[in-house]
Design a protein around this nucleic acid. Sequence first.
DNA 1: ATGTCC
Length: 454
Amino acid sequence: MRVPGVVFASHALLPEAAGDQALLQVVNVATLPGIVMASYAMPDVHWGYGFPIGGVAATDTASGGVISPGGVGFDISCGVRLLAAGDDRDALAPHRLRRLMDELGRCIPRGAGRGAVWQVGRAELEHVLTDGARYAVERGHGVARDLWRCEDEGVLPGADPGQVSDRSVERGLGQLGSLGSGNHFLEVQAVETVYDEAAAGAMGLRERQVCVMIHCGSRGLGHQICTDHVRTMDRAMARYGIEVPDRQLACVPVDSEEGRAYLAAMAVAANYARANRQLLSEAARRAFADTVGCGLDLVYDISHNLAKLETHQVAGAPLRLCVHRKGATRALSAGHPELPRDLAGFGQPVLIPGTMGTASYVLAGVPGGGAWHSTCHGAGRVRSRHRAAREVDGQQLRSELEAQGIAVRGTSWRGLAEEAPTAYKDIDRVVEASEGAGLCRKVARLVPLGVVKG
DNA sequence: ATGTCC
């Protein structure tokens, strides 16, 4: 290990599921060339590809620091977007909620492969890949204000479609504006508790308000980009004299041909993911307008799978770092120049999707935030998909959720069972540990009214 | 996460 491993967690949250190698992965990441300060893990840490999910690692770009696709994940720029409705939950009587959920269930494409809100050709897709959500808005899929409330204003700079394989583009063509599967969802929620009135007010949130949370990523396009660049780096590593304890940690110097190629391709996938969430927002807006007649204003949009080049003070000197966040969310403190002007006094909004049927959170960045201003990203899995599918009956789970008043529009019974709340850590404990560790503070807690499940 | 193996 070149640096220590630092795990932010309560004892109860430490990964202990049989065979969960997450803490070994924290150790493995600590061996990467150029890593600075520590290999960090958030309270929702669990076993991932190479890096743990919930891992944060920064490398010094000026002294051979590496970039590793495993430190971003296969679902590049997977993230969350929250929209606030004009209506409060009191206005959403059961029959109106049912109509709304039926319409969302009809118009939100989801599941492996199939369906997209926006059918584009190659030329149009290329604009999406370089200009992300901004291009979607320029083409009428949203309003200018949406972009002010997106991380990076909806566009990650430096995207080069020339670094992306034909196969990646092919996979991306038919999926623009779709949830995908696994833990991805679109939920109708209500604000249950506001912890910080001033911050919530600035974000446009109040108690009892209806919201829409969208959790999805870069679909097959991002997956293919990760696959392609892991293979390239696996072959190139030896030329740079790099050895890693796990082939899944394939990496190259940030400042190398392969490193720059990955970052340019990663930005392509990030822009696809941001446009994807923008298009799904527009579909949700149409469904709300048609069924309950109210609008949806964007609260924020933020990724939890990304590497970014950031300048941080290390031992009193500014260093240009490549900060990998995989299942970890950036959480800038108040006053940072990258924050939207009207939110500058409150810290970066951090959107935490809970497990299906449980709560979700809005958090904010705090001064002195550790781990390069990062915090948790969600509940964190504790049981494998296989085990959850064996132990949970999807149809029974849906009945239980409906009995709690949560409308469910799913895709497959098995997929529903794999995402059972029992397969995940308790989101309340994860958020409590994150706040307790000084990584963020609570702004609001939201509860589900209806879920469209990928 | 992922046309859950080109």
